[in-house]
């Protein structure tokens, strides 16, 4: 039901980037949980902020686009394991969820998105009248 965007599973995989600015786009690690009435996505996005994260649900696709400000340490670099750039990822969640009720929180570098499932239609009892 939920399919991730077709990207390589490699952690912190570089998706795109301009060599001039060395701004890269990373693929965040995401935990996905589905309960009876809710879909929860938990994404590791360290160093961003609530105002710099964009979450959209459109046509059954939930997309995360997070900007991370350039954060070079002052001084001479001794060790550099991560580059400058943001995080992007999208998931096909289908039409079973109520996009208008999507809620997202950002705390300690973790983005948590909750999408409630659409209320199931109640079975209708059709009265039968005797002819």
């Amino acid at each position: 039901m939920i399919a991730s965007s077709p990207t390589s599973p490699a952690e912190r995989n570089q998706l795109s980037g301009s060599s001039a600015e060395q701004r890269l786009t990373y693929r965040p690690n995401v935990d996905v949980a589905t309960c009876d009435d809710i879909l929860v996505l938990i994404a590791d996005i360290p160093g961003s902020s609530a105002s710099a994260i964009d979450v959209q649900v459109e046509d059954g696709v939930l997309s995360i686009d997070a900007a991370v400000p350039a954060r070079s340490l002052p001084g001479t670099a001794v060790r550099r394991e991560y580059g400058i750039g943001g995080y992007q990822r999208s998931f096909q969640i289908g039409a079973d969820f109520d996009a208008s009720q999507t809620a997202a929180t950002y705390r300690n570098g973790v983005l948590t998105i909750r999408v409630p499932r659409l209320a199931a239609e109640q079975p209708r009892t059709i009265p039968i009248t005797a002819g």
């Binding site: 070079s72 340490l73 570098g109």
Partner: peptide, 17 residues
């Protein structure tokens, strides 16, 4: 990430969540 200047060394680590 790690960087050093004349008097200090700064280390930054990603520890989300």
């Amino acid at each position: 990430d790690m960087a050093e200047s004349d008097e200090t060394i700064r280390v930054r680590a990603d520890l989300p969540g």
